[in-house]
Design a protein around this nucleic acid. Structure first.
Lengths: 184, 184
DNA sequence: TCGCCCATGTAATAAGTTACATGATTCG
DNA sequence: CGAATCATGTAACTTATTACATGGGCGA
């Protein structure tokens, strides 16, 4: 159900094609709910069958035709209802932490390298988010409500990536101190 | 594949039954990789078929018999290999953020209440983690390597919950300021 | 001319959730 | 006497991932 709602959410302010949605799920909403194009097309078919969205065929010259999907009043209603429902806190699910948990199985340097690599990945993501923040959200207190909510999700992304980086630093420091004590 | 490896990781230092594993996935490893008992039993059957684990029937008086699963040398080898492999950063996937993203569809107080509730959930989890930290990991720099790695995962849990709380506070502050400006 | 962008899908497999199913013991 | 704990599973269903499939236009 959750992907369905994420798609409806992506259609609230404008119609989009499957392709557009796929792109949108690589930025924006995709920062906290990702989906592949295969999933999206399948879900769009279901949503249309339920009449939560409808589609409009757009013929294009020098490009494949596309189907623009719109939220129907029914879809809008279901989405609104869902937003108002309480939800559970999601559990973390992270490969890297499982690996770190049994990190003693391999040489410490293997874990150190992996932590350094992830630190890099997260700082790149952080940089992306900060760029978006500077470009679109300069004065958060003056934002109209419609934009304030997406801003909050961006803030969560920024905090999340920062938290990752800080943890990697803490972990690397502890591991490095240790390998200094007992050199290989 | 990931659940399989999480189970192998849970069996590294001691054999466990399906039931034990289920409990273990409610604490410890479960803090960053959760699984239901149904999933666990299914996966155990697969792992045993592959000879990555083997089982020993334990007859018990006044309790149902149980099967204790041990990691085989083959399983140990596969786990070690997997730990040494690099992995991708996992994407966030969070219902609440989708809801916040389109929070303008509902009354601000609905979102505020939900944020307050989640703040509460996360501070409870944080308290749990901090208790574990105090009980088992008082002097991290003196920890033997085998315990240092689990300690690092606990630190991640603590930072993660703290980050959640901080974000909830930031979001609530911004929303509250706003609803003060324009009372309903 | 090679690869990327646009554009949409199907099929097979893997993973996860929900519901169903059983049954003894122990504690309040 | 009822609820929780111990203990193990099957079945149905929903979601997600990976691989396969097609094909024109456009820029380097």
């Amino acid at each position: 159900m959750a992907l369905a709602h994420a798609i409806l959410a992506a259609l609230v302010h404008q119609p989009r094609s499957g392709y557009d949605l796929t792109k949108y799920f690589e930025r924006s909403i995709g920062f906290f709910w990702n989906a592949s194009h295969q999933q999206i097309y399948r879900e769009l078919a279901k949503l249309e069958a339920q009449n939560w969205i409808d589609s409009e065929a757009i013929a294009q010259a020098s490009r494949p035709d596309k189907k623009l999907y719109h939220l129907t009043p029914l879809g809008h209603q279901h989405l609104t209802q869902w937003v108002a429902e309480p939800c559970e806190a999601v559990a973390m699910k992270d490969d890297l932490l499982v690996k770190v948990f049994v990190g003693s199985l391999v040489s410490t340097s293997v874990i150190e390298q992996e932590l350094a690599r992830h630190r890099q990945l997260h700082s790149e993501k952080l940089a992306t988010y900060k760029t978006i923040q500077q470009e679109y959200f300069q004065a958060p207190r003056q934002l109209p409500e419609v934009d304030l909510f997406p801003y909050l999700t961006l803030r969560r992304g920024i905090r999340h990536e920062q938290e990752w980086i800080d943890w990697c630093d803490e972990a690397l420091e502890l591991l490095t101190k240790r390998s200094d004590d007992k050199p290989v």
